[in-house]
Design a protein around this nucleic acid. Structure first.
Lengths: 222, 222
DNA sequence: GAAAATCGAAAAGTATACATTATAACTGAA
DNA sequence: TTCAGTTATAATGTATACTTTTCGATTTTC
């Protein structure tokens, strides 16, 4: 990607993820140009990209706003992701290579390490290896198009913004689910892999719901 | 959409669908600007759109080429579409309204009319009502995101370009499948609707394959 | 003679000036 | 006072000039 456009894209995206640019806020090209220290031209291109990534939305007359996700839309994303990623896991079970399986196990162990025996969690390491784990399976499904669809569903501002605070029990279950997914893939059992992955994503959705409810009660308590 | 950008988008897209702009051809912004009688700016925006619609692809260093679909990629699209649209039909079965069902039947009958008893087919009318038929089911699934995903899969240059010449038998089967899908939706049977729709798309894939093989042998005979 | 480096041309990236459109505010009339 | 129409302002859309980068070709050196 070109320099100024990349600069604008990452700056605006970071602003949205951090909350600096609030959901529903009107994004004016000139303001963003000043914020990013580039001209309007690359800002416009960045906004197109952010639009297709669902970080911003265009309303009525070409005005751009920070995407404002309803609970229903977030649920929709989780449901679609469960379906698509379950499907991807099923396909991966029929074609995944030994190398990919080994890499999967490596990331799995890194996640176990990141959680550690003492309950302290390195969130960044956890997220990084979790992402890698899922990406390996998606790639093993062997469909570039499916991978792009899933990427669009996974990289959502709402999910990225919220600090998903897994409880110890949730973490344990999530790790167990990863182990089961590996087993299913090793066995080459597409049905099993699909079921395990679908359940895993639904579990994540549940955890996300609880985190949101906790946030809401915190805000209400203030 | 704005005037010049829309002009550029539709002109370039039409060129790709018609074959005037051949697969693999390098699209230069200045040339396109002249072709569309607009400046480079709206051309650039149109190219971004066409890129996300998979009509063009960016290679190495930001150079844009007319998308060149391999057989494997086309198959991939059909398989994903079968999965997603089958899923959509299943969801639609649980929530479709009486109005939507009535509209579905209307389009179905229009398709029957377009084919007619004498074997002559009005392709435009067929295509139009076929598209409407599928769109109603996709909308009835109640997921904007799913609808967008499917739209991207359906509106493909390869599919649009090829004159899909259904045989009389293929047409008859396709119409029967539509009737069965309506029955499944009316019955509120998600499993049935999913199966019927999945089969319908796989059948379309098969017809497409035959049409391509026929094209290939025609070209070889020249 | 082959490989690497440099130079030139062409295409994409960026900035800015200008055109158009849409929204909001203000004024006038009912 | 309210509604409608007009005008002004502010934002986006478009054109063009300029900058940077890349690809290709030619030349030079090993």
């Amino acid at each position: 990607m070109s320099k100024a456009k990349e600069k604008a894209y990452s700056r605006i995206r970071a602003g949205i993820v951090s909350g600096e640019l609030a959901p529903g806020q009107h994004l004016k090209e000139e303001e963003l140009a000043e914020l990013c220290d580039v001209s309007r031209t690359p800002v416009r291109e960045a906004l197109r990209q952010l639009e297709s990534d669902d970080f911003v939305e265009r309303r009525d007359n070409q005005r751009v706003f920070v995407a404002n996700w309803t609970d229903a839309e977030i649920d929709d994303v989780f449901v679609l992701r469960a379906m698509l990623e379950g499907y991807a896991a099923g396909r991966a079970a029929q074609s995944i290579s030994a190398d990919a399986l080994a890499a999967l196990t490596t990331h799995h162990l890194s996640i176990v390490d990141a959680v550690g025996p003492n309950g302290r969690i390195d969130h960044d390491v956890f997220m990084q290896h979790n992402r890698a784990f899922h990406n390996i399976i998606i790639e093993a499904a062997g469909s570039q198009r499916l991978a792009i669809m899933l990427q669009r569903l996974v990289e959502q501002p709402v999910v990225l913004r919220t600090l998903v605070s897994y409880s110890a029990r949730d973490l344990h279950r999530s790790i167990e689910q990863h182990a089961e997914i590996i087993d299913a893939l090793e066995a080459g059992d597409a049905v099993w892999a699909t079921a395990a992955m679908t359940g895993h994503i639904h579990h994540a959705q549940r955890v996300f719901h609880r985190a949101q409810a906790a946030d809401a009660s915190q805000i209400a308590a203030q």
